[in-house]
C-alpha cells in the first residue's frame, strides 16, 4: 500500500492555504504533519479525504486517485461532530454499518471498543451528555471500528487528560504494531517524537522541513550538552568557549557547535579533579528544530519584504 500526495495547492480567495505540498507514505508507520496554527495541516487532511476540493495536485492511493468512499479510511476529526441527540452505542453501530461490517462483527467490535475505551457506563447516553474527552474517544472508536488500513488523526490528543492520553497512545501503538498507515497532525512534540518516523513541518502553507525525523536530528548533530558536577563548571566551560543556555541547580546546559567542544570540557573538568555526576550529549529536540525552522522562515519572509 502507498499513499502519495503530489503537489497539492489550495487557495481560499486571495489567501493561499497550501502551496505545492508533497509527501509519501511508503511503509507502515506514523507520518506527522506539524505546523503553527493556520499552517494548513487540516486543509491538507481534508483535501486527502476529499472533503475539500484541491486547486491542483493529486492524491494517489496505491497508484490511483484516492476515493475515500471506496477505500476504508479511518478519520478522527479535530472537532467533535457526533450526532448530539443519538445514543453513542447506536452511533457506533451505525458507523460500523456504514463501513460495511456485518452484524455479528459489529456487535463484537462495538463491545470491544467500549471496553477498550472504558466507555461501558456511557453506552446508552446521548453524545451531548458526554464530556469532550469521552466524545473524542467515541470518535476514535468510530474511526477504528472497521479496522481501516489508512488512518488519519487530526489532533488526536487535544483536550485529553493524562489517563485518556495514555489510552490513545496505547491504541496508536497497537495500530502501528498492526502495520497501519497513519497520518497524524499534532502540536505536541513529545507525542510526535514518540510515534512518528517521518514528518513535514508546514508554515504558511509551505513545507519548511520534511523527512525522516531521526535523520533530520542526526543532520543537526549532537549539539545539546547537559552537565552536572560537584564543582563550578562554568569557568571551565568558558575556557572551552561555551556559554550556558540554562543554569539550574540540577544541570547546566550548553549549546555546542561541535562535539570536540564537549570532549574538551570533559577533559578539562577531569583535569580539574571535578566529579562529573551527569554528562549528556544529544541531538536537538523536535521542538527546537520546529521553532528554529519556523523562525528562520519568518525571518526570510521579513527580509524578502524589505
Amino acid at each position: 500500500m502507498s499513499l502519495t500526495v503530489n503537489n497539492i495547492s489550495k487557495k481560499y480567495g486571495d489567501f493561499t492555504a497550501l502551496r505545492g505540498l508533497s509527501f509519501e507514505l511508503k511503509e507502515p508507520g506514523v507520518y506527522a504533519l506539524l505546523g503553527t496554527n493556520g499552517a494548513g495541516k487540516s486543509t491538507a487532511i481534508r483535501i486527502i479525504l476529499g472533503m475539500l476540493a484541491k486547486d491542483s495536485g493529486e492524491v494517489l492511493y496505491n497508484g490511483a486517485e484516492l476515493d475515500p468512499i471506496k477505500e476504508k479510511v479511518g478519520y478522527l476529526a479535530e472537532e467533535r461532530g457526533l450526532y448530539p441527540k443519538c445514543k453513542i452505542v447506536d452511533q457506533l453501530t451505525y458507523f460500523a454499518e456504514l463501513r460495511g461490517m456485518k452484524k455479528t462483527e459489529i456487535t463484537k467490535a462495538v463491545d470491544y471498543w467500549f471496553d477498550r475505551m472504558e466507555l461501558n457506563d456511557y453506552r446508552d447516553k446521548r453524545a451531548n451528555q458526554l464530556s469532550k474527552g469521552n466524545q473524542q474517544k467515541v470518535q476514535l472508536a468510530a474511526a477504528l471500528i472497521a479496522d481501516p488500513q489508512l488512518l488519519i488523526l487530526d489532533e488526536p490528543l487535544s483536550g485529553l487528560d493524562p489517563v485518556n492520553s495514555d489510552i490513545f497512545k496505547s491504541i496508536i501503538n497497537e495500530q502501528i504494531a498492526k502495520n497501519k498507515y497513519i497520518i497524524m497532525s499534532c502540536h505536541q512534540m513529545p507525542v510526535i517524537e514518540e510515534f512518528c518516523s517521518d514528518i513535514t513541518i508546514l508554515h504558511h502553507g509551505e513545507a519548511v522541513l520534511q523527512g525522516d525525523l531521526n535523520e533530520i536530528k542526526k543532520s543537526y548533530g549532537r549539539v545539546n550538552l547537559a552537565v552536572k558536577c560537584d564543582g563550578d563548571i562554568l569557568p571551565i566551560a568558558a575556557e572551552c568557549g561555551l556559554e550556558p543556555t540554562e543554569i539550574t541547580p540540577e544541570l547546566v546546559r550548553f549549546k555546542i557547535k561541535e562535539e570536540e567542544q564537549a570532549k574538551q570540557l570533559l577533559k578539562k573538568a577531569a583535569a580539574a579533579d571535578m566529579t562529573i555526576v551527569r554528562y549528556e550529549l544529544r541531538e536537538p529536540s523536535l521542538h527546537e528544530i520546529f521553532v528554529e525552522h519556523i523562525t528562520r522562515a519568518d525571518n526570510a519572509a521579513k527580509e524578502a519584504r524589505l
Binding site: L49, M51, V73, Y75, E79, G81, R99
Partner: peptide, 15 residues
C-alpha cells in the same frame, strides 16, 4: 453551517 459536523459527515463513506 457547522465545520465540526462538516468533518464528521464528510468522512462518511457516502457519495
Amino acid at each position: 453551517a457547522k465545520k465540526e459536523c462538516a468533518d464528521m459527515y464528510g468522512a462518511l463513506p457516502l457519495t
